[in-house]
Amino acid sequence: MTILVTAASGQLGRLVVDALLDRGVAPADIVATARDTAKLADLAERGVHTARLDYSEPASIAAALDGVDRVLLVSGSEFGERAAQHQNVIDAAKAAGVAKLVYTSAPQAATADFVLAPEHRATEEAIAASGIPAVIARDNWYTENYAADVSRAADTSVIAASVADGKVASATRADLAEGLAVLLTSDDHVGQVLELAGETAWSYDELAAAASEVLGREVRYQQLTTEEHVAALESAGLDAGTAGFVAGIDDGIRRGVLDVPNDALARLIGRPTTSLVDGLRAALAA
């Protein structure tokens, strides 16, 4: 069985390759792909096959998928282009007769009114239409996403956001990568949509408390309105479109898009997911 991981030069993809190796998958049975294979040189030195794969270049996808049984499609990062790029991978996977496709989607992608949801929803629909045996892994927010906020709070003692009382059921990239490795190496969960998250959702007051523990100084959560948030982002140098996009993410959190705690990820990895405090501590140390 040969397993291909897209975007293996990225933070999540790299951790998935590590998790596959930790689970005993032979390096020669893994194909790590990226647009720039030079970024995969260390994996090649460990015996992992590497290949160039660009979501926007169907020929590169078809070549990389030759002889592959299972594929992890890590969602792309080019907003506005992702649905079409993902479609290229889906088409190539179908043509190659891939036996199992795992896709990293977004929380509540099929139903959420969320700035990030439409491209994920379109991809989920495309996978269903393709008929490829698949698992939709809706990854919640990475705990590491908050490392920068906590780092800034070391100087400001404040974490500011426009999420009001919204909650997040975050998980670390390492936990999610381990769960994805389980999905790739097992025959289970085909046809399922899994919300992969932490078992407990936390509020931003709890985020501030966790930051206080990690930093050893008091940190408080400052609630902003959406308008105040956009203004603050623009004053920090973001253009209006980007500022609105970032504030739109907080709007989704305020409305509960990421408040989907469950034990699906914990059951996959066979242990509780990493706590918020421990995840932040590891992220800052890294």
Rank of each mutant, 00 (worst) to 15 (best):
2 T>L: 11
8 A>F: 08
10 G>V: 04
14 R>L: 08
15 L>N: 02
15 L>A: 07
23 R>N: 10
27 P>R: 11
29 D>F: 01
30 I>V: 10
31 V>D: 05
32 A>H: 12
36 D>Y: 06
37 T>Y: 06
46 R>E: 08
50 T>A: 07
51 A>Y: 04
56 S>V: 10
60 S>L: 00
60 S>D: 05
61 I>R: 00
61 I>G: 07
63 A>M: 05
64 A>Q: 05
65 L>S: 08
65 L>E: 08
70 R>H: 14
71 V>D: 05
71 V>S: 03
73 L>W: 00
75 S>L: 12
79 F>H: 11
85 Q>M: 15
86 H>E: 04
87 Q>A: 06
92 A>Y: 01
98 V>A: 01
98 V>R: 07
103 Y>H: 10
105 S>I: 12
111 T>P: 03
116 L>D: 04
118 P>Q: 10
121 R>P: 00
123 T>A: 04
131 G>I: 07
131 G>P: 03
137 A>I: 11
141 W>T: 02
146 Y>H: 12
150 V>K: 04
151 S>V: 08
153 A>E: 04
158 V>Y: 02
162 S>W: 14
166 G>Y: 07
167 K>A: 12
167 K>W: 00
180 L>K: 04
181 A>F: 12
192 Q>F: 11
199 E>C: 04
200 T>M: 07
200 T>Q: 08
201 A>V: 03
202 W>H: 14
206 E>H: 00
208 A>E: 01
208 A>V: 05
210 A>R: 00
212 S>D: 11
218 E>V: 05
218 E>L: 08
219 V>W: 08
221 Y>T: 05
221 Y>K: 05
222 Q>E: 09
230 V>R: 11
233 L>M: 15
236 A>P: 00
245 F>R: 08
250 D>E: 14
256 G>N: 10
258 L>Q: 15
262 N>S: 09
267 R>M: 12
271 R>K: 14
276 L>S: 14
283 A>I: 13
285 A>H: 10
285 A>V: 05
286 A>L: 05
286 A>K: 13
